[in-house]
């Protein structure tokens, strides 16, 4: 299934992320999460990278859950401290729904991240998306890890000069990050200018159109899969609104 046409994967991502934004009831979101997980594995997402990403976002997820639990005051109280309700049913449900929403988005992103960039560009080209737009998207996605590496390199350079990050207070750390941001952004701007020059030197933007050496073709399996996904999407949306 990992060789499914990128357009089918894009359609699946669109369905999952749209569902994640539309659904607010827990059972539906849980169902969507299950569907999304199945697709993630079937479409050949890098499981290790996904696990790493989930682990990295875990503190943020827990914070989001905590914020919902603390600030949503409606619903049946579930946990009291003395007479004060700390956890309510609605707070827990909303927190869980929001968490699932993030999981779904991460899983969808993992599927596209696992896809060959050139196949995605070729798919965009078949979909008549202007190539300047699709390349901009690709370069931006490839630039994010570069930006993150530049930032961690700058942090390592500081540590090699004797700054012990672990001993700094949170305020001092935040100040340090703020001070590092400008040179790292400046470095990213320089790199992006160089990249633009290199791309242009190889003819990028020279013609209103460009050909694609890599060809993607929708097979019968891809069309059937798209059809099944489309029907599932319609049924899910109808079910969500007509059977609350």
């Amino acid at each position: 299934m990992s060789r499914v046409d990128p357009r089918v994967k894009l359609f699946w991502v669109m369905l999952c992320t749209s569902g994640a934004l539309i659904f607010v009831r827990l059972p539906w979101m849980a169902g969507l999460l299950l569907f999304c997980r199945l697709g993630t594995f079937s479409f050949g997402a890098d499981r290790k990278a996904l696990r790493g990403r989930l682990a990295r976002f875990l503190p943020l997820f827990l914070l989001i859950l905590l914020v919902h639990i603390v600030f949503v005051r409606t619903g049946t109280p579930l946990l009291f401290i003395r007479k004060y309700p700390i956890v309510t049913f609605d707070g827990l449900m909303r927190g869980a729904t929001t968490l699932m929403r993030f999981f779904i988005i991460l899983c969808s992103a993992a599927v596209m991240a696992g896809e060959n960039t050139r196949r995605v560009l070729a798919a965009f080209s078949k979909m008549k998306v202007p190539y300047l737009f699709s390349f901009m998207l690709m370069i931006a996605l490839r630039f994010l890890p570069t930006f993150s590496t530049s930032f961690s390199d700058a942090l390592i350079a500081l540590q090699l000069r004797g700054v012990e990050l672990k001993r700094l207070s949170l305020v001092k750390k935040l100040r340090l990050y703020r001070d590092l941001l400008l040179p790292v952004v400046a470095d990213a701007v320089v790199k992006s200018r160089v990249l633009a020059v290199v791309m242009e030197a190889r003819g990028f933007g020279a013609m209103p159109r460009r050909t694609s050496y890599l060809e993607v073709r929708m097979t019968l399996r891809d069309w059937v899969l798209t059809g099944v996904l489309f029907v599932l999407g319609i049924v899910a949306l109808g079910g969500y609104y007509f059977f609350p």
């Binding site: 060959n116 050139r118 370069i139 990249l195 791309m199 990028f204 013609m207 159109r209 050909t211």
Partner: peptide, 18 residues
């Protein structure tokens, strides 16, 4: 800036619509 060698080499000729 492309994942594979082949992609990298195809980029220029593709821009020239070959």
């Amino acid at each position: 800036f492309f994942p594979t060698v082949e992609d990298e080499l195809a980029f220029g000729p593709e821009n020239l619509c070959l």
